[in-house]
Design a protein around this nucleic acid. Structure first.
Length: 881
RNA sequence: ACCGGGGUGGCGGAAUCGGUAGACGCUGGGGACUUAAAAUCCCUUGUCCGUAAGGACGUGCGGGUUCAAUUCCCGCCCUCGGUACCA
């Protein structure tokens, strides 16, 4: 046999990528018409400048869906774009004083080049980038539409404020010790004005919509449900004690899910960051309160709320009257109360709430038990306090003896009748504050006029473009950068023409990503964010692939905007995504020296292979090895481009798909890549051998095949079609690409075992072609380049990228016998070859005849036989001893 | 701390509805081919006992349900993601 040329992925992959482009395989029409449609989308990347392995994994997974849907006969839309605004680019601009408007397109060009090398089936004509005014003008358009519908408003909000930088900081820029990224200590929480979307108006709809998302992972639905956090309870109003008509507030409303414990209330609690607390502070207490509030501003919210954290409070000096009894209760600020949940105030019931109990002990508040646990044996009302279980009421006047549920209902009725309370539902979800004091974001189209107040820009004024970078000094200090530019801020009022000033905050980048999926459908459309005809044709997204870190916020905003779009007449769907795939992270070993921090991982991988324990190149100390998410700071990244250069795109794709199923984390293993590369080469040799065999075979031969040839054909087809069935199931239903690839490896191993790679193979040409074509189809979504070579050698028409998924031949699958597992008392004792259609009685007879089975059954009678057709037989006998 | 995941050989993982634990790949060991190397091919590789035949144990830990549990239930441990201004 002639020596075949070794596989050259670089040459072959460039060739097929050009062929796909020439054939226009991946361009999607504006309307799929009568053809079934499939919209496959991956979370768009932040254009940092270089593709990393996390991107590669994300887009390879998406590409499998897109290419497989096309094989299944769908008209596929598979676009790509750039999430280009936001903090990292702004920080880089501060550092280098280079305009993000210049840096960003360069980064995009680089990353696009890198993406192209992977041979991803994108329709690049639909590419979008959020930093372009043609894109972000629609953020402004949405803002104005929501403003007109009272779904956007201004409010006060708590932010991190660093007096050293004189500006607001992102959470990421502050560490746990409240030190800022530049090293200033004492970052505090401060209240500032901001813009917010009224997403809470959609809470009920967003909750109900989850029931329709049957193709979303259950864990994501659970996280969304908990984030929405619907809680049904009651509101109860407490009036100010004493006749102080001049006091700024006359009552406090609390929210409770346990109204039946009201008689056990010993205080009413407010959050330290609740601005209303000043209405209740008396002069005598003002110093104590001020110091408590200041201390809380320096404490992390999570530290304040931790269950194990000490419960602390301070008396405001004022009291309110218990609405049921008229008894005075102190108004107290407590560290664990949330200002933005429910009504922002709660009643303190120490006997039946652990946190309240802790506070009561710390402050010496009275503990009054009002619920007795269900009586057991000798009736006992005493319980270990705090007690939060079920029971009946005590110490509660007319309600004594009622079960909790009864008391809750009757007290609610009494509260309504008395006009001091009623049913109330609260949510964990809060409105979405989207103001940012940053440069690299979408300007908010608002003007403030002394005469007209807050004035939205007219739609014709859009886009409101970001002013030039050259006109300001971006330092990351001193508040909103846009305020520096007089030419931007000082404008005439759109209504009255008088001198006015613009809003200088920009928008959160979550606004960009809340609706980008719609822009791909008509990226040039000028009348609206999306052409409603295109939206009707393509929405919802059929498959959405991205990281689980977006499980809650991004996906909730995404779903919220989809509902808004529907109400604006832009689309006809409430939910944006039918099937959601959340993929795991890409991890790799990182190496850390106790003296010198992280050490570059790449040179140490070779050392690890040589089994020398890794040591620091600078001080020779042994290094700590951890498996962590690939990142620049940990110096453990793998350059995808280097991988493609060395092994080719198909090997890179197959490795990321094979090493773990999509939803799990993937650990980088250089040896694993070698293994995949071996498989690709093995496959290549098989394909090359067929090229020779098919060319050599006289096409006119009509001789009857030998029995050996018939047997080889039969076996090859059995193997081929059972693999086709498995791979189809893995791709279509289970989305487990690693096991699909394993099945293909087994197929190739099996074909080698049938000598298909060898010159003495007797397999017929017709079966050889079938094997090649079916293999090509199965490979096409996973390793699309070598799949084309396989298709071409097998004599397939046009490209496999344009082909259809083959049908399983049920006849080829039929088997004569199967292996039946025989257990005795649940332990495997024999494996019998039996006829495929064996019944329980026959299986029992065969099993009893087996020597191994007999040894374990012995003289004991068989009590029961459990037969699972096609799988196993379990003989149950009396246990010994 | 709270919410949601995850934990299976030396390693990544497989086991689809409670039915043969360890598919496939890597690593290690042995062999073939070769002057040699690379590449390739073949055998082998959970632990323990045993010369072997064979047996016992084994899916983070402790219990439970079942003829049968990686899978279901209860209680823990460790770990990852999110916690509203990173995206």
């Amino acid at each position: 046999m002639a020596q075949n040329p070794p596989y050259s992925p670089a040459q072959s992959e460039t060739h097929w990528q050009a062929a796909w482009a020439a054939a226009g395989c991946f361009a999607a029409p504006d309307d799929p018409g009568t053809q079934a449609k499939s919209y496959v989308l991956e979370m768009f990347p932040y254009p940092s400048g270089d593709l990393h392995m996390g991107h590669v994994r994300n887009y390879c997974i998406g590409d499998v869906f897109a290419r497989f849907a096309r094989l299944q006969g769908a008209c596929v839309l598979h676009p790509m774009g750039w999430d280009a605004l936001g903090l990292p680019a702004e920080n880089q601009a501060i550092l280098e004083q280079v305009a993000p408007q210049q840096r960003t397109p360069k980064n995009i060009a680089r990353m696009k080049q890198q993406l192209m090398r992977l041979g991803l089936a994108y329709d690049w004509k639909r590419e979008i980038a959020t930093y372009r005014p043609e894109y972000y003008r629609w953020n402004q358009w949405f803002f104005l539409q929501l403003y007109a519908r009272d779904l956007v408003y201004r409010r006060q909000s708590q932010v991190n404020f660093c007096s050293g930088c004189d500006t607001v900081l992102a959470n990421e820029q502050v560490n746990e010790a409240r030190v800022c990224w530049r090293g200033h200590p004492d970052v505090v929480k401060r209240s500032i004005g901001e813009w917010a979307f009224r997403i809470t108006a959609y809470a009920e709809a967003l909750l109900a919509g989850l029931d329709d998302l049957t193709q979303w992972p259950e864990r994501i639905l659970a996280q969304q449900r908990h984030w929405l956090g619907k809680s049904v309870g009651a509101g109860l109003r407490f009036a100010r004690a004493g006749n102080d008509a001049a006091a700024p507030a006359q009552e406090l409303e609390v929210f409770t899910t346990r109204l039946e414990t009201a008689m056990g209330a010993c205080a009413v609690l407010l959050a330290p960051d609740d601005p209303r607390h000043t209405d209740w502070v008396t002069p005598a207490q003002s110093a104590a309160v001020a110091s408590f509030v200041a201390r809380m501003q320096r404490t992390e919210r999570s530290a304040r709320l931790a269950e194990t954290a000490a419960k602390e409070g301070v008396f405001t000096g004022s009291s309110v009257l218990h609405p049921f009894t008229g008894a005075p209760l102190p108004v107290v600020l407590a560290n664990y109360v949330l200002a933005d949940y429910g009504s922002g105030a709660v009643m303190c019931v120490p006997a039946h709430d652990a946190r309240d109990h802790g506070l009561a002990q710390a402050m010496g508040l009275p503990v009054r038990q009002v619920v007795a646990p269900p009586a057991e044996g000798d009736a006992q009302d005493d319980a270990t306090l705090p007690y939060s279980g079920p029971g009946h009421l005590m110490n509660s006047g007319v309600y004594d003896g009622q079960r909790c549920e009864e008391a809750r209902a009757s007290m609610l009725q009494a509260a309504q009748a008395g006009g001091f309370g009623g049913p109330q539902t609260t949510w964990h979800l809060r409105d979405w504050g989207f103001s940012r004091q940053r440069y690299w974001g979408t300007p908010i189209p608002i003007v403030y006029c002394d005469a007209c107040g807050t004035v939205p820009l007219p739609l014709e004024a859009l886009p409101l473009e970001l002013p030039d970078f050259a006109d300001l000094k971006l330092t990351g200090t001193g508040g909103a950068p846009l305020r520096q530019i007089k030419a931007f801020t000082d404008v005439p009022c759109p209504t009255c023409g008088a001198a006015a000033t613009r809003e200088v905050d920009t928008m959160d980048t979550f606004v960009d990503s809340a609706w980008y999926f719609a822009r791909y459908l008509s990226p040039q459309h000028r009348e609206a964010p999306v052409d409603p005809a295109a939206a009707a044709a393509w929405l919802p997204v059929d498959v959405y692939v991205g990281g689980p870190e977006h499980a809650v916020m991004h996906l909730l905003y995404f779903r919220f905007f989809t509902r808004v779009m529907r109400q604006l007449g832009l689309c006809q769907t409430d939910e944006p995504v039918r099937t959601l795939i959340t993929q795991g992270m890409v991890n790799a070993p990182s190496y850390r020296c106790p003296n010198h921090g992280y050490v570059a991982a790449a040179p140490l991988r070779a050392a690890a292979a040589a089994k020398t324990p890794p040591s620091c190149p600078r001080c020779a100390q042994p290094l700590q090895v951890l498996v962590e998410k690939m990142s620049k700071s940990k110096l453990n990244g793998v350059d995808p481009l280097a991988l493609i250069d060395r092994y080719g795109a198909d090997t890179t794709r197959l490795y990321t798909l094979f090493a773990a199923p999509p939803e799990k984390d993937l650990e980088w293993d250089p040896n694993g890549v070698e293994g995949i590369s071996r498989f690709v080469n093995r496959l290549w040799r098989l394909i090359a051998a067929q090229e020779e065999a098919l060319n050599a075979a006289p096409s006119t031969a009509r001789e009857a095949p030998s029995p050996a040839a018939r047997e080889a054909d039969l076996r090859a087809r059995h193997l081929l079609h059972s693999t086709l069935q498995r791979v189809g199931d893995e791709l279509l239903r289970r989305h487990h690409f690693n096991t699909a690839i394993a099945a293909l490896m087994e197929l190739v191993n099996g074909l080698y075992a049938l000598q298909m790679h060898a010159s003495n193979c007797v397999m017929g040409t017709k079966v050889r072609r079938e094997v090649l074509q079916v293999c090509a189809a199965m490979l096409a979504p996973l390793a699309p380049h070598i799949a084309e070579s396989c298709w071409a050698v097998g004599g397939g028409e046009k490209l496999v990228a344009q082909a259809r998924w083959p049908a399983v031949d049920a006849q080829a699958l039929q088997a004569q016998t199967l292996t039946l597992a025989v257990q005795v008392n649940g332990k495997l004792r024999a494996q019998l070859q039996v006829p495929a259609d064996v019944d329980a009685a026959t299986a029992g007879r065969l099993a009893r005849a087996d020597a191994g089975v007999q040894r374990h059954v012995g003289e004991r009678p068989i009590l029961k036989e459990i037969f699972i057709p096609g799988r196993l037989l379990n003989l149950v006998v009396a246990r010994e001893g």
